[in-house]
Design a binder for these strands. Structure first.
Length: 642
DNA sequence: CTTTTCACAGTCGCGCGGATGGGA
DNA sequence: TCCCATCCGCGCGACTGTGAAAAG
């Protein structure tokens, strides 16, 4: 599919400066998602100041799998990717160089001032497939000016009084997309990252990490799908952020809004997602989920990970009035979650006179297509592999726990999402970690045959580990909403925030963690909390030994798995040219090996067999990406579903 | 034919109640 | 002996994807 076919019209109007950002862009003759722009900016910043990336890249299995496992790492000339899914921009090595830096801190700055606008990096409208939010032709709650950031008009973005009435959101306090054609906020602003508010100097400049970004990326590579049901279905992966840069004493409402990402109706055809007519923009229903802890102080939001694990998606329009936990979506439409941080008064009332107190953050990897039944079996498998609630569907569930210690790649049962929200005082540490668990709990051997040899667990567990690559693997996806003019500002932001790290560094080194500034927020150590909430189930404890492949450390979601990245996956990444990938690959479902795209497509469409089936055929230990045509044919003579 | 709905089986954590053990 | 805290097992509900049936 051609990119032009799926990109919203809004994406056509891209600043020329944008195309000049990358040498490869011009070759593509095609607009690149603004998200790339953001990534590029970050990348450039990183490349200027760090050589750690090479060090990191050179490591085997140290790859930030979430990013580097991307199959679409492209060489400068060999571009491949998946415009449809836009995964390439997320997985391209060029854009993700930062991920491989020692810091692993991924900052995405948004434009705020006019000078920023002048900067191609910050100005490019984020209209790409992966990170775009469709700009509706009709009125929108978010004016076009949003490309500066998330300027939420007081009129349309009424003060949420979340404190006293969070339900207002559900009942229309935030009347998103209530009217026809209003589903797509006019948000042509900066790319994925954050959007800031003009004149937001009045408030603290928030910066946001997408905590479980690697997991999101894994799904995003295959075009994330989210089940919607009448009773509501939780998202998986769920949204989880770390916020910094807020005023410690100011009060904020934090909520997620899910908006249409493009004006298209999608269908899964021929093993890939294709557009199919226009989206129904008359969809009504709640589009906002206010974090239950809203309003709260900046210190509160910054001391812990902000998770939206209880957010539910539904297609039941009748559920919008009385259920603030559910967001009403339409099946086969592509959506983009957005995080809003609104400074409010102590009683939770938004200052209507200061729209600059609203900041919005968008991560393109959070895009998903709402479905009533999974279409792409890869997504299904990913869900099964990573979602603790779906453990019952893991074919080799038992073997994962009975296997030798070194072979055990699945996390403890305590990786349950509930644990992430139950352990008192441990949210900051527990949730990020559990997010990691979700990523790490995947039976690695199933997908990355060579990863098993990588002592992932060791890197995680060994406090004394001084491996730079391991340390580098710790990553956070940082999205400061307000970007200071000039890339150097971004650098500064990065340097400051990372080196001084007001947030948990999530480094591999526990010591670093303990000494991090962020921990000062936590009277109860994350580690203590971990210990408290860990391994409560005796049944699993019996199965587990002390040397677990996963660690209860509050580690970043990404590195563990990333570190497992195979050389195969990483090598192509080193020379990846993100821009090129965007155009040349026609569909995102391409796997690592573009040459095997046919096979890949076939394999990926293979339906997951019932556990009762032949172990050979159903063997979940082989990831479709890793299967060659020969292997696949051998394993599954029946062939894949077309 | 595509999409949606529903019942189902499986995992898991919570909460309750009973059993156990230690101290007064 | 009584009281209290802790541990353990069980039932329940929440949650998942599956697969068949229903709906369009």
């Amino acid at each position: 599919m051609q990119l032009e076919n799926i990109l919203p019209s809004a994406s056509i109007n891209l600043p020329k400066t944008f195309y000049n950002l990358s040498s490869s862009d011009s070759a593509n003759n095609s607009p690149r998602p603004s998200s790339q722009l953001d990534y590029q900016e970050v990348e450039r910043t990183e490349s200027e100041s760090s050589s750690a990336s090479k060090k990191y890249l050179s490591g085997v299995g140290n790859g930030m799998l979430g990013e580097t496992d991307g199959d679409s790492y492209n060489k400068a000339d060999g571009r491949k990717g998946s415009p449809v899914l836009g995964e390439d921009e997320l997985t391209s090595g060029r854009r993700y160089n930062i991920d491989e830096l020692g810091s692993d801190r991924y900052f995405i700055s948004s434009t705020q001032t006019s000078s920023d606008m002048a900067s191609p990096c910050s100005l490019f409208p984020y209209a790409g497939q992966t990170g775009s939010v469709y700009t509706g032709s009709s009125g929108s709650r978010y004016p076009a000016s949003l490309h500066y950031g998330s300027v939420l008009p007081p009129a349309g973005f009424s003060a949420p009084s979340v404190c006293s009435g969070r339900s207002q959101f559900g009942s229309g306090g935030y009347q998103f997309s209530q009217g026809p054609g209003c589903l797509y906020p006019s948000y042509s602003g900066t790319g994925i990252g954050s959007m800031s508010v003009p004149g937001s100097a009045a408030g603290a400049r928030a910066q946001v990490y997408l905590c479980n970004r690697p997991l999101w990326l894994k799904f995003h590579r295959h075009q994330t799908e989210m089940i919607i049901t009448k009773q509501g279905r939780r998202m998986f992966p769920f949204l989880s952020f770390n916020i910094t840069g807020l005023n410690l004493t100011a009060h904020y409402n934090v909520f997620v809004e899910i908006v249409l990402a493009d004006p298209n109706h999608w269908r899964f055809q021929g093993g890939k997602w294709v557009t199919c007519g226009k989206a129904d923009n008359n969809m009504q229903g709640n589009k906002v989920y206010v974090h239950p802890e809203s309003p709260n102080t900046g210190a509160h939001w910054m001391r812990q990970e902000i998770s939206f694990g209880k957010l539910k998606l539904t297609n039941n329009k009748g559920a919008n009035n009385n259920n603030t936990q559910m967001i009403v979506l339409q099946s086969l439409h592509k959506y983009q979650p957005r995080l809003h941080i609104v400074e409010v008064t102590e009683d939770g009332v938004e200052d209507m006179n200061n729209e600059a107190r609203t900041q919005t953050f968008t991560f393109p990897e959070n895009q998903f297509i709402a479905v009533t039944a999974y279409q792409n079996t890869d997504i299904t498998q990913l869900k099964i592999d990573h979602n603790p609630f779906a453990k019952g569907f893991r074919d080799n569930y038992d073997s994962m726990y009975t296997a030798p210690e070194s072979d055990r790649l699945t996390p403890s049962p305590t990786d349950s999402p509930r644990s992430t929200q139950i352990v008192p005082g441990a949210r900051y540490a527990m949730q990020p970690f559990f997010q990691d668990q979700f990523v790490n709990n995947l039976p690695q051997n199933r997908f990355y045959t060579s990863e098993r040899t990588v002592p992932q667990t060791n890197s995680l567990l060994s406090p004394q580990s001084e491996d730079p690559s391991a340390a580098a693997s710790a990553q956070r996806w940082f999205v400061p909403p307000v970007q200071q003019p000039g890339s150097n500002k971004l650098d500064l932001s990065y340097e400051n925030d990372y080196s001084t790290s007001s947030l948990l560094s999530y480094g591999i080194k526990p010591l670093s963690l303990q000494t991090s500034h962020a921990l000062s927020y936590y009277p109860d150590s994350a580690f203590a909390s971990m210990a408290a909430g860990w391994g409560t189930r005796s049944s699993y404890q019996r199965k587990m030994t002390t040397g677990l492949p996963w660690s209860p450390r509050p580690s970043p979601p990404a590195f563990a798995e990333d570190q497992l990245g195979t050389a195969k996956e990483k090598l192509p990444d080193e020379n990846a040219q993100p821009t090129s990938t965007w155009i040349e690959t026609s569909h995102s479902l391409k796997s690592v090996d573009s040459s095997d795209s046919g096979v890949y497509s076939m394999v990926c469409k293979r339906r997951r067999m019932s556990p009762g089936g032949s172990s050979t055929e159903n063997s979940p230990t082989i990831k479709c990406e890793d299967l060659t045509a020969e292997e696949y044919n051998k394993d599954n003579p029946k062939g894949a579903k077309a």
